[in-house]
């Protein structure tokens, strides 16, 4: 029981602190790569605090959907964070890969409906673009997680961080699945080359376009959520890599996850600065790679299993 409590405490701390810290590291790295001094690493915390102290302007055109959506999607993402072993420790609540994909979709649905509820052209555009992309991303995510599940012989997500066979050398199953999720994560967390997170151009936005009407505390929630999503997804990718390296001890896994997540954040910053945003029509091509990776990972896992 006490081990469960310790695990719970660590995961809670990470849920509260890590997402914004990672965003801070990402922005600081990106600034350095753009040859600028850039904001402090803790800047996202200041931003968060400022937003919580602000009042909110809510357009009269909007209904309860718009107002309630941030809380709803936050709930979905918090459950996601509690069922996924993204910190390197087993998740406090046991869940399987279908639940994982469902929760992501639920959060997306909440923000999409809220965007439609605003009645603005940009909200509609963003919702339509995001749902079009999600259709392409979901199969990749399901198959990549399935590859891990087949390989470990267990459908629960927790199996990913407690490798039953712990053989290492997974004959490319784990690296391929990790790569597929990395590509899917670029869409899920709106990063380059899918979407330019620094852009101010509403017409090119996908995920961001849905949030343009939020202000004050709700905006703080919305921004925290995208950070949380990034943290969970990068943590999950780390589990695949750690499994490949056959690392078993809890301490090594937690610190390894932390290190890998930061490495991925730095990689995301490099991509932000040096990649060119893909044309909207080229995005399916990129996601096809993800699908191919996860399919091959599944096949290899099935052959090995």
């Amino acid at each position: 029981m006490s081990i469960y409590l310790v695990r719970m405490a660590i995961v809670t701390c990470e849920i509260v602190l890590l997402p914004l810290l990672l965003i801070g590291i990402l922005r600081a790295t990106r600034s350095r790569l753009q040859k600028r001094k850039g904001p402090r690493i803790f800047q996202p915390f200041y931003d968060f605090m400022r937003l919580t102290r602000k009042s909110a302007v809510v357009s009269e055109e909007t209904g309860p959907l718009f107002r309630g959506a941030p809380a709803a999607s936050l709930a979905a993402l918090l459950i996601l964070a509690l069922v996924t072993p993204w910190s390197g420790l087993a998740a406090p609540i046991s869940g399987d890969l279908v639940l994982f994909v469902f929760l992501l979709a639920a959060a997306r649905m909440a923000s999409g409906l809220a965007a439609l509820d605003t009645g603005t052209a940009f909200g509609g555009l963003g919702a339509s673009r995001e749902s079009a992309l999600s259709i392409l991303v979901e199969p990749t995510l399901v198959l990549a997680l399935a590859a891990g599940a087949i390989y470990e012989g267990n459908l629960t997500l927790n199996a990913l961080c407690q490798p039953a066979n712990g053989r290492g050398g997974s004959a490319y199953v784990m690296p391929l699945a990790a790569a597929a999720i990395w590509l899917a994560a670029a869409v899920e967390t709106s990063r380059m080359p899918v979407e330019d997170p620094t852009t101010h151009l509403e017409l090119t936005m996908i995920h961001e376009a849905q949030m343009l009407e939020y202000s004050g505390p709700r905006l703080a929630l919305v921004e925290y959520q995208s950070a949380l999503k990034l943290t969970v997804l990068y943590g999950l990718i780390s589990q695949f890599i750690l499994n490949e390296m056959a690392i078993k001890s809890s301490i090594a896994r937690v610190s390894g996850t932390f290190g890998l997540t930061i490495a991925m954040v730095v990689a995301a910053a490099v991509m932000d600065v040096f990649l060119v945003r893909l044309h909207w029509r080229k995005l399916p091509d990129l996601l096809t790679f993800g699908l191919a990776f996860s399919l091959v990972a599944c096949l290899l896992a099935a052959l090995r299993g």
């Binding site: 600034s31 600028r36 001094k37 904001p39 402090r40 200041y46 302007v57 343009l212 009407e213 202000s215």
Partner: peptide
């Protein structure tokens, strides 16, 4: 680099 002072420019008046 105004960003270093914690200043960001935004696309939406709501922000």
């Amino acid at each position: 680099d105004v960003g270093r002072f914690g200043i960001q420019f935004t696309a939406s008046p709501r922000f």
